[in-house]
């Protein structure tokens, strides 16, 4: 019985995490970014294991605190702790299909998928054109690059691809 209750709590916590957004991209949740690896609930204590997107990302501490405060609002939760783990490493293919769509709504192209020869292309999040150029692989945040759409003439940002192949 206790086991079932714990599983139920974990899915409740999962629902709460859907409300915790990336501080810089407020349309996308930490779940949709693929940052949540494991949720464990035991005797009033909630433990969330998170995967950092980039090690030097200054938003990580904010995300950790936001997750802990959101989960603590559940009446059954007495203690909440979010920790970062590195195994498995976060890769950009962890962003969910919903997450990819919401990134586009925000004007950020979702991370491209690698083709077999290790190449990738980025489609414009505004008009969908493939006629884009990379202006700078490094962008205003560790996880993003700066691109330009030659079709609709808009500059845009894209999530940097990160994979195990690198």
């Amino acid at each position: 019985m206790a086991e079932t209750a714990a599983r139920e709590m974990e899915s409740k916590i999962r629902e709460v995490l859907q409300t915790v957004k990336d501080p810089e991209i407020d349309s996308v949740s930490v779940l949709e970014l693929g940052m949540v690896e494991e949720i464990v609930f035991k005797e009033g204590a909630a433990m969330m294991k998170l995967l950092p997107t980039f090690m030097g990302c200054p938003a990580l501490e904010i995300i950790k605190k936001n997750i802990e405060s959101a989960v603590l609002l559940l009446p059954e939760v007495e203690r909440a702790e979010a920790v970062f783990i590195y195994d498995p490493p976060w890769t950009s293919d962890r962003v969910t299909p919903e997450g990819r769509e919401k990134l586009k709504e925000f004007g950020i192209a979702p991370p491209p998928e690698f083709t077999e020869d290790g190449k990738w292309t980025v489609d414009c999040p505004y008009c969908g054109s493939k006629y884009t150029t990379m202006e700078n692989i490094f962008g205003p945040a560790a996880c993003r690059s700066i691109l330009y759409c030659k079709s609709c003439k808009n500059p845009f940002e894209a999530m940097k691809p990160i994979s195990n192949l690198m």
Binding site: F54, M55, G56, C57, P58, Y86, N136, I137, F138, G139, P140, A142, I146
Partner: peptide, 17 residues
């Protein structure tokens, strides 16, 4: 400027870990 500061930020993150 954008690229180098991003690289430095990553690298500081590596030191931090």
């Amino acid at each position: 400027d954008v690229a180098f500061s991003s690289i430095s930020q990553d690298t500081m993150g590596h030191a931090a870990i």
